[in-house]
């Protein structure tokens, strides 16, 4: 089974992103949902402006892409700047700052290690959703803790809106 790390690398350098996403935008953490037999992975792309002393600015998402897992086929693509649902969003104003309180004490390597841990945990859920193995309450707790740790609180409203069941199950906002 393809890992989520491989999948993210695949879509990040794949045709859809290379063609549709302007360079300079970063990919969000992935959000999962199932639709019939499909396991779908949604990510959004947003701008950031790196600044020192935890003042890096995170801007609202501009593009939302949903891919089929594990094929990586693009299922939906949305440009939020022209979406009537987003007419109240000021895309050129930051939604908040990085880094948030929960990760304030992590250094770069520790942050990356947590991210890797998160992906591994997500692989467990993906395997379970794909009918391979189980996903215990303990695993769910671990995944929830990592989601809550890593997902950026200023972007919570967007994560929540774009994949409410996943967000509400795993992020303890």
């Amino acid at each position: 089974m393809k890992t989520i790390q491989e999948f993210i690398r695949q879509i990040g350098t794949g045709e859809a992103v290379r063609s549709l996403i302007p360079m300079g935008l970063g990919m969000s953490y992935p959000l999962l949902r199932t639709e019939g037999e499909h396991l779908l992975v949604t990510v959004f792309y947003y701008r950031s402006k790196v600044k020192p002393q935890d003042k890096t600015e995170l801007f609202p998402p501009e593009y939302v892409l949903t891919f089929d897992f594990p094929s990586g086929r693009l299922m939906t693509f949305e440009t939020l700047r022209v979406d009537p649902r987003c007419r109240n969003i000021a895309f050129d104003k930051p939604a908040g700052l990085f880094r948030h309180e929960a990760i304030r004490d992590l250094n770069r390597d520790q942050y990356r290690a947590k991210r890797e841990e998160f992906y591994e945990s997500l692989n467990g859920l993906i395997a379970y959703l794909g009918g391979e193995g189980s996903f215990s309450a303990e695993q769910e707790q671990t995944l929830s803790e990592l989601c809550t740790l890593l997902y950026e609180p200023p972007l919570y409203p967007f994560y929540r809106t774009l994949a409410r069941p996943f967000f509400e199950r795993f992020v303890k906002a």
Partner: peptide, 15 residues
């Protein structure tokens, strides 16, 4: 369709 939230009022000072 659920509207996405606006970010007015959430932008950090000095951005």
């Amino acid at each position: 369709e659920e509207p996405l939230p606006d970010n007015e009022g959430t932008s950090p000072e000095g951005y």
